[in-house]
Design a binder for these strands. Structure first.
Lengths: 135, 135
DNA sequence: GTTCTTGCAAAATATTTGCAAGACG
DNA sequence: CGTCTTGCAAATATTTTGCAAGAAC
């Protein structure tokens, strides 16, 4: 996969660090928290990772998963759109092993909001026990 | 409403502080974060509020809403069951005024999980602009 | 008296910013 | 040069614990 092109599609100027962060996110099998990224990319300071994630978020290259316990997690969008979050899907947080799973193949429900509410994004987390821990 | 009975139904021993916290939550028009509670109940130290909320959570008297930005928020359950969370519903977080609304009247969707995942609870947050801010 | 609860202080975490040095064009 | 990016240190904010004093039984 061509990450350089991906960054450019999201109007993000290319740097070595940004590539590293993008690849770390892409290489993970689920959303990562800031501290998980820190551990994974020892060469970049946490403030750098943080600022990179902030930028990615602004350009909708990552979306943010909240829930579970360890604070916010980040996940690479699989879209090429720098205007909106796309490719949103539910997540499953295992209360035992603390891992967050993407339920990629599931649709987010279509919620009918009361008059006047203007939705932008949605965050659906199901908590419970994952197959690994449920043996 | 009889909060003393409510606490007892959840097997929580009665104290003045616990009543205060329960009433503060009940009196709010949406979920409150720890710091919001701190501001609301000036007479109790934050550690006390924290421990009370932890206890309430264990006894399923409150449930936890994650999402939006200001960290975790707590909301009183409207059930009398101390074994499970009940009365869960979606929430709406306004990105402009930062308020969290309960969408009490909406059902949580029924998500079909892949084999082996055992759900316990669900957290659905819709982010966007609320009617107040959307004028 | 023994157990439970509370307040205070402080540790542990997590998030965010200031600033100067370096990279890049 | 001038702008953008980075690392380091440090400020903030948030969550959590230790401990001793006090309340409840």
């Amino acid at each position: 996969m061509d990450y350089e092109a991906l960054l450019q599609q999201h109007h993000i100027k290319l740097t070595a660090n940004r590539l590293l962060v993008a690849k770390a996110l892409a290489g993970a099998d689920g959303p990562l928290s800031l501290s998980e990224l820190e551990r994974k990319i020892m060469t970049i300071d946490k403030s750098g990772i943080f600022r990179t994630l902030t930028l990615f978020r602004e350009q909708h290259l990552v979306h943010v998963i909240e829930g579970g316990s360890e604070g916010v997690k980040y996940e690479l969008c699989h879209s090429h759109n720098s205007e909106h979050d796309e490719d949103l899907h539910p997540h499953f947080y295992c209360q035992h092993c603390q891992k967050t799973y993407c339920l990629d193949n599931m649709e987010l429900p279509d919620i009918e909001l009361p008059e006047g509410f203007q939705p932008q994004s949605m965050n659906l987390i199901i908590q419970g026990i994952c197959p690994e821990c449920n043996l």
